[in-house]
Amino acid sequence: MSMFARWRAAGLIVPGLLTLALLPVLIGLGNWQWHRKSWKEALISRIETRRTAEPISYPAVLAEYVKTGDVEYMHMRVTGRFDYSRERHLYHPTDQSQGWDVYTLLIPDGGLPPLFVNRGWVPETLKDPSKRAEGQVAGPVTVTGLVRLAQPKPWFAPDNDYAGNRWYWPDLEGMQWGPEGPPTPLQFNTEKRQAYAPFSLDADAAPPNPGGWPRGGTTEINLPNNHLQYVVTWYGLALTLIAVFAVFARQRLAAVEDDGLQSKKE
């Protein structure tokens, strides 16, 4: 009896074809996760390198943004004056208390585009700027921090409350406007305004603001790298599939052999 005939008699043709079809899929998924692992490790390394590098100038970051757009987490230093009338409060609860990240418009020296600086976190009790007046520094200031690109609105984030100055996601474009919110297209076209920076700056924790508030260093970098687990899972499933089919095929072929021997005896 030929091998094909034996496999057909053992009912292994369809299971064998299914195994051959599924095995490349499992191996391909394992290979994909291996490449994702390498990509994630490179990304984490690049962010860590940028985060700990010596700060570069605001004009250098602007030039890199125009050239490549890749400026996320660059360590930047800028000098200017804060416009405290343009303070925005981004909701940021913690395990300790309700609180807010304080975004304030910085007018850089040299006529460069204004940019919003996340000066740090304050508890609900210090949301009112008058309760932390020591931290509202008048005159020129130099701020060092991490560049953050504008982010799209998260799926489940509430709408920002322009009138109440309560923000639930950092809409940098929306933050440019006052309590009335963004203008109509006609108002926008007739109003002459200087362009704002297409990114914000998360201030470092050091040096602290006078009085200790807002408390800088709010950047959360959380990039889980579980791809090795996924690699082991997919490759493990591929090996399991091979082992299961091998045991199943061996049992089925043995049963066919036993049936053949029994028929000859009869």
Rank of each mutant, 00 (worst) to 15 (best):
E173W: 13
T184E: 01
M175H: 08
A203V: 07
E220S: 06
G30R: 10
T19N: 11
G99E: 04
P55G: 01
W32G: 11
L43C: 07
P129K: 10
A60Y: 02
F4D: 04
T79H: 07
Q96C: 04
V256E: 11
E64R: 14
A197P: 00
T144R: 05
L115Q: 00
W7S: 09
R119W: 11
V102D: 02
Q176P: 00
A5F: 10
G139M: 09
A246L: 13
N189I: 00
Y91Q: 02
G28I: 07
K40M: 11
G178Q: 04
D171Q: 02
K131D: 04
L22T: 03
P59E: 01
D161Y: 13
Q229R: 02
L18F: 15
D83Y: 10
A197T: 01
P152G: 02
R193Q: 04
G80H: 11
A205S: 11
F82Y: 15
R193V: 08
A150R: 05
V244N: 09
G164T: 00
P182N: 04
L20H: 12
N226I: 05
L223Y: 14
T49D: 10
D95V: 06
P183I: 13
M74E: 03
M74G: 00
N165F: 13
S97H: 10
V231K: 01
R252Q: 14
